[in-house]
Simulated assay, not measured.
Amino acid sequence: MRAIRCNQYGPPESLTVEDLPDLQPKAGEVVIDVRAASVNFPDVLIIENKYQFKPPLPFTPGSEVAGVVRAVGEGVTQLQPGARVVAFTGSGGFAEQVAAPVSSCVPLEDDVDFALAAAFQLAYGTSHHAVVDRAALRAGETMLVLGAAGGVGLAAVQIGKALGARVIAAASTDDKLAVCVEHGADATINYTRDDLRERIKTLTDGRGPDVIYDPVGGIYAEPAFRSIGWRGRYLVVGFANGEIPKLPLNLALLKGASIVGVFWGDFAKREPERDAAGFKELMGWIKQGKLRPYVSARYPLADTGRALRDMVERRVTGKIVIEP
């Protein structure tokens, strides 16, 4: 089988395509023929050794896949070869085959597109955990989403609207903001052109947002937090900007505000029952038409480095996938 390999930490261009032996499942595992693998920003950080999850070298990046079960290991009775599944694997996804614990696999119905399925779990799982569980966003409240045109950002916009909140989307270009409006955003901020604090003040009548969803970090974190409303909840989702901000804690005191960490991966491991309940709610919203996963581009396996470079340079809206 062909697989993308990270033999040394570095930029996307350092990745290679290699031929490896076909995988054999261990006890409790299945091997999946990968039809689509989602590209997520942590994939960029992992190959550069900048993420908390550090697989030993050499490794195949890619954490989220959809495909068809090829083989099952000893003790696996829940799935059979030929079953369509989506799985969160942590690594190994950018390949023609991947091994996954059967516990990480979710069956897919026959009419579900593999690319849409692969693009769903991490982005919507993260945003549901953030917005519903950690922020407890309520109908009638206002949420500001930074980096709103990205995978998790667009998921947050849609989830906010499903809950009945007013959603303000912030992104770096008018084209990205147009995508946010198509997916439900009520108002927008172009933070390369607008004064972020003044625009937030105008759009919230001076009250500030009840919730700020921040997967970006960097230079926009402090002005956004200075604009938060009374009893606001600031969601620390990630640092796509590459810079971890240092927020003055007196701002939390003055606004009675909370700084709330969001780490869906550990949440899913530590609280699997609550994660499963969240996934069930998300499935219900999809069937009701309240959520529409958006895949903006598909790349062949050999172009995985280009896909990750597009992610680094913020040319991505919604989700992108690798199709081996």
Rank of each mutant, 00 (worst) to 15 (best):
V65R: 07
T188M: 13
P215V: 11
E141S: 08
G125N: 12
M1E: 04
A119K: 03
G164E: 05
L251S: 06
D186N: 13
Y191S: 06
N190Y: 07
Y294D: 00
G28F: 04
A95P: 12
S258W: 05
V145M: 03
K26S: 11
A302M: 05
P25H: 10
D111S: 15
V65M: 06
L163T: 03
A240R: 05
E13H: 09
Q52R: 15
V132S: 13
R231E: 14
I47Q: 02
A170H: 04
F94T: 11
V44W: 00
L282E: 10
A149I: 02
E64N: 10
V167W: 05
A297I: 00
I32V: 15
I259F: 14
A297M: 01
F239A: 06
V68P: 13
T304H: 06
T317H: 02
D186H: 13
K161A: 05
S296I: 00
Y191D: 02
P245K: 05
I46A: 04
G242A: 05
Q158M: 13
R298N: 00
V157F: 04
A83I: 02
A178D: 12
C6Y: 00
G82P: 11
Q8H: 11
V145D: 01
I259N: 01
P215S: 10
P56G: 01
T317V: 15
R207Y: 10
V321P: 02
Q121L: 14
N250H: 15
Y9I: 08
L253S: 10
A36F: 03
Y124S: 07
P55M: 10
V30C: 09
A118V: 01
G150Q: 09
S172A: 10
T126W: 15
G160Q: 11
V236H: 06
I200C: 09
